[in-house]
Design a protein around this nucleic acid. Structure first.
Lengths: 162, 162
DNA sequence: CTGCCTGCAAAGGATTTGCACTCAT
DNA sequence: ATGAGTGCAAATCCTTTGCAGGCAG
């Protein structure tokens, strides 16, 4: 009764996890239980619109799969980002949060949304990617600076904390 | 031969250092050698358009005034920021940089410039504060989010690294 | 004088690394 | 079978903190 390498797949695993695994594999990376665990945590967070730090991911992975070491989570995140299966956003509060990358195995084209964070409650808000277009255009024209709107978040105050 | 409290002033100290000291004092904070040292380092950095992290400031202070302990530099920066004599910007790379605040002892009104950082060479570029106005307006209208353009930097690629 | 600020040293928390072993391929 | 990935533990790095003494106001 031969198994084909998908031994880690689980019933609950979403389309996105499956897709991420596929891209991971095609990137020449190995698919291990630890990596599955991280991907599942990220998938669940995405569903509930959460943005998790490496440490939070580590904690959740530890809950789901105690055998996965924290250090491995860090290494895994690095690999996943490198393989473009996961992307990260630097928040103003100097934390970095991760989330599953939806498509696009190739490089450049920033498709994802931009983020702003409330310095009061810490909430991260996704904003349409074209919000920053005017700024991006101006920076490019005046300074030759190519803005990457999805790689860092700006701070401010949200309506709840206003 | 009575001295009036300016015992720490030095010939080389710029107008800005003097102003910072004045505001510091009027904020009810004490003016100590350590605080002078930090202010001088920040002033020198501003002149050369540098943006220094707490650690870099610590190093430069150590060079100029070896007797000032690193821990004091951290505490000093906290105090100076609180007293609005110094402001800090969170860079995308998850470092925080400090610089002298030019005027405005009062709160709110963001006057200072915004920043963008090159993810390739790390250079921090000051941009006119109105650059982000279109975005700020849109975020405010659509989400009730009040953007603080000077508190965090966005990432991108500068013309040199283009 | 009074207590804010400091130096010192030790604690702290998050991330990284060396090493030997394991398992995905 | 072979080396990428892992667990473990120790090392690092940056920053914070408790405490006693010192200096600004």
């Amino acid at each position: 009764m031969p198994e084909t390498g998908a031994h880690h797949l689980r019933p609950g695993d979403s389309q996105r996890v499956a897709g991420a695994v596929a891209r991971l594999r095609s990137a020449g990376e190995r698919v291990t239980p630890a990596r599955y665990a991280v991907l599942r945590v990220l998938d669940a967070a995405d569903v509930s619109d959460e943005h998790l730090t490496a440490e939070q991911i580590g904690t959740r992975v530890a809950e789901a799969e105690p055998s996965v070491h924290r250090a491995t989570v860090y290494r895994t995140l690095t690999s996943l980002v490198e393989a473009r299966v996961v992307s990260h956003v630097h928040l103003g509060g100097s934390a970095t949060v991760y989330h599953l990358e939806v498509e696009r195995p190739s490089a450049a084209t920033a498709h994802s949304h931009a983020h702003v964070q409330c310095s009061s409650c810490g909430r991260v808000i996704d904003v349409p990617h074209d919000t920053f277009d005017p700024v991006a255009t101006r920076l490019h024209d005046e300074l030759g600076f190519r803005l990457d709107t999805s790689h860092a978040a700006l701070l401010g105050t949200c309506s709840d904390c206003g």
